[in-house]
Amino acid sequence: MTTLEAEQAIRALAGARQLQDPYLKRWLAREQAERVAMLDAARKLRLRTGQLAVALDLLEEIAVREGAGIDSILSRENLQRLIESKGPAPARASAFIAELRAIRFPRLGATLRRLSAEISALALPSGVNVVLPKDLNSDELVIRISVRSPDEFDRLMTMLAEKRDGLARLVRMLGGDDEL
């Protein structure tokens, strides 16, 4: 694909998706190999407007963080698998964005996985939910108890008390405890 052909194809896609002009300008300002790789991904995944904008944001940020080109990022096996596979495009597009987020926020993802594993290991009874702060944006752990009778309340409070050490450990982990 020539530079001119790539530009025309990107403009056509951006027009069809009503992509905002600043995004289009940033896309066109990339190196030829980068913009073509992005075009290929956008076409094969049938990215919607919002997804296209988010993907551009994330790819640009990853490129700066890692000192890599967007084409090189998109050539990674886990992303290529999603771009090239034959499943339904909406599901692949969502998974693609999720994968880009995981690359962009690697330590947040790892910490969330560890905390989720801790919560699962607690084997809390039905009726008790532990809610982590969104994106771990605070040190507050919410423990929600849903009951419909005094007996049920007593039972859950007793079971919760048995999980006290595990819950305290979760609170410490949220505060960046070195055990993490």
């Binding site: 994106d135 944006n137 949220l174």
Partner: peptide
């Protein structure tokens, strides 16, 4: 790259490094 850390929107409306990471550094 320093402007592209693992920052998330906090309850006070500011982006900061996510809490366990930030607090571990402070500690």
């Amino acid at each position: 790259p320093m402007l592209l850390g693992e920052d998330i929107l906090c309850p006070d409306g500011r982006y900061r490094a996510f809490t366990p990471l930030r607090l571990r550094l402070y500690r």
